[in-house]
Each structure stands twice: as structure tokens, then as C-alpha cells.
Design a protein around this nucleic acid. Structure first.
Lengths: 203, 203
DNA sequence: GTGAACATGTAAAGAGTTACATGATTAG
DNA sequence: CTAATCATGTAACTCTTTACATGTTCAC
């Protein structure tokens, strides 16, 4: 349980439809929280209702169908129990870092710089959004939520600085020095060159 | 394809067994990159070999079984093609932020502080590790990999600062002010209290 | 009147984890 | 001799996304 719990969490803010929940994840989640598709949400809502964590407070079955869910007492209890459990340490899956660590001298550094520039753009947009969010006059952000937003700002700013520095280092060809006690860089390039030369032969 | 590609990436450093690959993800990934279980790795290795991206260079079938894989020319080509593709923006799933944003006044703030203290510990350990890694005298870290490590340092340091500030704010009860144009905090607490009171009645 | 946004839902496929099962070697 | 580490692998399960299917309402 965890997607279920985040649905309960969203529902704790205000009664919502499946569509609302998706929207809520869409923008808050935009890089900061979470993400979820309709294919997950609707079946989970059904299940949560069956299990008595949520109930339908408002159902339009004619015209534009619409089903609004609200937490039951059991749902509130379950949510607050979950909030109290130590959160798992976040798992980051960052393709850029993976790719960067696997880069080598025989590849075009400009491509890596382009990756960084694209990252910079998205991160910059996100930072703008996060900064303006608490003063847009419409969104609800609790004082606790405000702490989470500050996290976003801090992290995104740190990331932008790192991107800037990395681009500089790559452009000036002044990368920080790594550690290579066994000459692995040399060996890697040799293995790779040998393989590439074979290409025409038997591949 | 993406787990497959990270296996190719690891294999590009040096020929490895499934066990080695898991270990490689285990520590580098420790919060910074990625993660992977044996249940994913072994079937993928088999598949990658069948498809001609990797081959067995060393197989011990007696005694302690061991199978070491290496990239084929096709594997190198595929890896480098992948490295060139724009990396997806990382999706973070951070339970702590989700829980923090869902916290409310009727809950014990000390529990949230405890969550932060635990996070601080893990993040601190990770930062120590990342800082010492490039000078431990044994690990191989390329100059590009060094950039990725700097990202880790930057991000983890920013996180520690934020944790410190957040704990302070919570302890002094001086949270930053959010935005609540429709009195949602009040409504939320009212909905929740109504539900909790009903508990004995029909739940 | 038409395109965007609102709204719900299912089925199949894909991705990945957990638990299980097995055994060898090494360090103390 | 025994616990830790090295080492491989499968099966069942869970979780999640993608693609499809359908219809309404609102703003221009």
C-alpha cells in the first residue's frame, strides 16, 4: 500500500473525483512528488470504496457522469496511521546521472552538454512554478505543505547551480579529476575500440 | 528498455557477473542512481545474450558457478545510441514530502520531526559516503562520473540544510505561511473531526 | 460546430520485486 | 565448523502504464 495511501492523502484535502486526483498529481507531482495514471486510479478508488476507506458523496449518473469520493472514519484512521509510519528513503532514478557516469572520451561531449541544457530548461521551469505557486492567489497550500515547497526550491536551485558548473567544466574541458588506480579508463577505451573494429568482421 | 540499458552501462565499465551488477547498483545506487534485484538481472542478462548485445566470456560450470558477461559490438553500439538520447526527467517519489504536505494541526508534530531526524541520519551517512568515495584509493571513478558525484554532494547538502531549517521551524512552531484563500485548513479539520466523532457510532 | 477539457472505465502488456531453492568457498 | 559471502536462477505476484472505448459540456 502506498498508491492507495496517496489517494487517501489527496482525498483528505477535499472530496475529489478520479479526474481531480489525476490533475492534483499532475502538477504538484511535476517533478516533486509522485505520478499516477487513470489506469491505476479508478480501480484503486473502486477497491478503496469496497474496503470501506472511502465512500461516494456525490454521484451524477446522467449527463456528464461524475463520482466524488470522501474519506470514511476508517479512511481517516488508515491515512493518519500511514502518515505516522517512517517514510521510505526516496529512490531516485536519474537517467542523466547514469548516462553521465557512463560517458567516455570517445563520445562527443557536446551531446552531454545538450542533455544538461535540456535538464536546465525543465528544472528552471519547475523552479519558476514552485516559486510562484504559494502566491498565485488560488492554490491551497498548508503551512506544512509550505515546508515541502521549500524543499523543492532548495533542491531545484542546487540542481541549477550544479548544471551550470558542469556545463562550464565540460566546455572548458576542465573536468574534476576522478580516481582510477587500475587504469580502467584506458582499459575501457581499449575494449570498446577492439569491439568497434570487429564490427565489420563478424557482427 | 532502460533497465536493460543500465545493465549494458555497468558492463561497459568492465565484464561482470549478475552478482557483480547487483553489487554495483547496491552501493552507487544507494540513494543516488538506481536499484535492481536479482529477479530482474538474471532474466535480463539471458535475454540480452540471446539478442546478441552481450556474450559470455568466462563460464565456470563446475564448483562455484560463475558467468561473466561482456558487451558485443552490437551491445556497445546500442549503449552509445542510448547514451545519446535525451534522458527522461527524473521522477521522484518522496513519501516524506507527501506525508509532510498531508500533515495537519490535529496530528502530533513531533512525529513529523522524527521523520525528519531519520531522514537526516540517512542523508548524512550518504553524504559522508559520497564525499569519501572518490578518494578511497580503490573505486574507479571517471572524470565524468566525478561530475555525477558532485551532483550527489550538492543535492545531499541542500537536503541537510532544508531538514535542519524544517526541524527548527516545527520545534519553534514557526512554520512558513502557506496560502489558503478558501479556508481549506479549517474545512479539512472540520471534516476530519466530524468523521472521527462518528467513529463509535456506525463504523 | 468544433476542439479542448471534463469524466469514467477496462484489458492487455510490461516492469520489477519477493520469496524460494540451491550450492560453493572463504575467513575466523 | 560455521557464518558470511559468493553465485545463479525461477515462479508467483504486484504494481503500473498504455491503449482503447465512450460520452458530455464548455468556450470560442
Amino acid at each position: 500500500m502506498s498508491i492507495e495511501h496517496s489517494i487517501l492523502a489527496i482525498l483528505s484535502y477535499w472530496p475529489s473525483t478520479g479526474y481531480d486526483i489525476k490533475a492534483e498529481f499532475e502538477h504538484k507531482a511535476a517533478g516533486l512528488y509522485w505520478g499516477m495514471s487513470y489506469g491505476s486510479i479508478y480501480p484503486k478508488l473502486k477497491k478503496l470504496e469496497e474496503q470501506g476507506y472511502i465512500y461516494t458523496i456525490n454521484e451524477e449518473e446522467t449527463g456528464r457522469r461524475k463520482k466524488q469520493y470522501e474519506l470514511t472514519p476508517k479512511g481517516w484512521r488508515e491515512l493518519e496511521k500511514w502518515l505516522t509510519l517512517t517514510p521510505a528513503y526516496p529512490v531516485v532514478r536519474d537517467e542523466l546521472l547514469m548516462k553521465m557516469s557512463t560517458w567516455h572520451e570517445d563520445m562527443d561531449a557536446q551531446v552531454l552538454i545538450d542533455h544538461l541544457l535540456k535538464r536546465k530548461e525543465t528544472t528552471g521551469d519547475l523552479l519558476e512554478f514552485v516559486k510562484n505557486w504559494p502566491t498565485n492567489g488560488t492554490s491551497y497550500i498548508s503551512d506544512y505543505g509550505m515546508l515541502a515547497i521549500r524543499y523543492g526550491e532548495t533542491r531545484l536551485e542546487a540542481e541549477l547551480n550544479w548544471i551550470e558548473e558542469s556545463i562550464q567544466a565540460l566546455q572548458k574541458n576542465q573536468l574534476p579529476q576522478g580516481q582510477d588506480p587500475q587504469d580502467m579508463t584506458k582499459k575501457l577505451l581499449a575494449r570498446r575500440r577492439a569491439a568497434v573494429q570487429q564490427e565489420g568482421v563478424n557482427d
